[in-house]
Design a protein around this nucleic acid. Structure first.
Lengths: 217, 217
DNA sequence: GTGTTTGCTGTACAGTTATTCAACAGGCGA
DNA sequence: TCGCCTGTTGAATAACTGTACAGCAAACAC
């Protein structure tokens, strides 16, 4: 006998959260290309018409899925920084590295999804906007911590904004590499690479970022 | 009166080059998703059947387009390194930075295409394979230069492979950031960021990459 | 001019896509 | 228990997707 119960009702917000989860599962399973409305709905155990009922369309759902993982990641990073709030700038940066490069965030599935989103930034306006917002926040957190470090070290005319661009590039680059091939390095090695960057900055690398005083060789 | 001339013939290799160009244009214009056989052929000014005539299918064309820009970029980088062959490791690395972050390679169109390809690495095997090959070459060039630097500086147990992963991440991260938003930094600033990394490595950052002697901090 | 080669066209095809919407039914209030 | 509200269904739709292939015609040899 076929199942009599065809569906169970849900609060719209709960259902939308389920659809976002299913979207992320499909994203990692089929990639950005292979992920279709039917597959997402099959994953969520609902009928294909439901996405258009809760969202303006598939694109809106995908954009919200991107915002969801962005929120989740930024939340974890903010939390890590707050836990180290009382300590020095160096320790706060280390906490940020540990959080950014934890096993949880270096999860291949998460990074693959991120990679696919990055690839869509230039063609999907909603994703572009969400990216821009989170990226600027990420960079400003690092710029602030590096500015504190400069104060502690009494560096004059230190361009913390530019240094933050470099450190963000290093972290994003590590994410990128790990997303493209998770076997390249371990989370511990990634943290070591970032600590070496700070070591080098403290040992003398900072001079390049000082506006007036160029290196005298 | 409608145009009488329907098409002009071309040498297969020339036509294929045109199709690859059209593929890259469509990639940046419509993204990896929106790029279809019909759009590529419209861009190239040919009939939609021509791709199947010259290639086994669309995927083969896309993979060859990726290899084409990869070859182009790696060729420029190899050339830059050869031009600085007689000099010290530091100078060779600087030449590599200059080449990697030249206006030509930080071209938004090129980076947008690259970004789209990166997003497809995990779903298209041919692209994954081509990426893996070029990425390993890129890293080995840097590892070799860093190994030379370690010899010159008499660093013992320096893990140039790990340091190369970090430097590759920094460079890839700068490409990524510039692809996502070209206004974040200028090519000159990107080179400065890389030079600061080397400065820091020389000033003391290298110790983290020495296997035995951990920092006594 | 004629013949031959073959690069190229363009329609046809089968399969997929996102989206729509009238009908259905779960679950709550009364 | 009834009745309403509304979350959900699922078939239908139109617009796409990549590929195949029979035939056309450009360009060259003669």
């Amino acid at each position: 006998m076929a199942s009599q119960v065809h569906f169970t009702r849900m609060d719209p917000e709960v259902r939308k959260a389920h659809l976002i989860d299913a979207t992320l599962v499909c994203l990692k399973q089929y990639g950005f290309q292979g992920m279709s409305v039917r597959k997402i709905c099959a994953q969520a155990g609902v009928s294909p018409g439901l996405i258009s009922h809760h969202y303006a369309g598939k694109d809106e759902l995908v954009a919200e899925a991107y915002q969801a993982i962005t929120r989740q990641v930024m939340g974890q990073l903010r939390e890590a920084m707050q836990n180290a709030a009382g300590q020095g700038a160096r320790e706060r940066l280390s906490a940020f590295f540990q959080a950014s490069l934890s096993e949880k965030l270096l999860n291949p599935h998460l990074l693959e999804a991120w990679l696919a989103f990055w690839g869509a930034v230039k063609t999907a306006e909603a994703i572009n906007h969400a990216h821009d917002k989170s990226y600027k926040e990420y960079r400003s957190i690092l710029a602030h911590a590096l500015g504190q470090l400069a104060l502690e070290q009494c560096w004059v005319d230190f361009d913390s904004g530019l240094a933050a661009i470099g450190l963000t590039a290093l972290l994003d680059g590590l994410w990128l590499e790990h997303g493209l091939d998770p076997d390249t390095f371990t989370p511990a090695e990634a943290v070591l690479i970032c600590e070496a960057w700070i070591d080098g900055l403290l040992a003398g690398g900072f001079r390049r970022f000082c506006v007036q005083a160029q290196r005298t060789g």
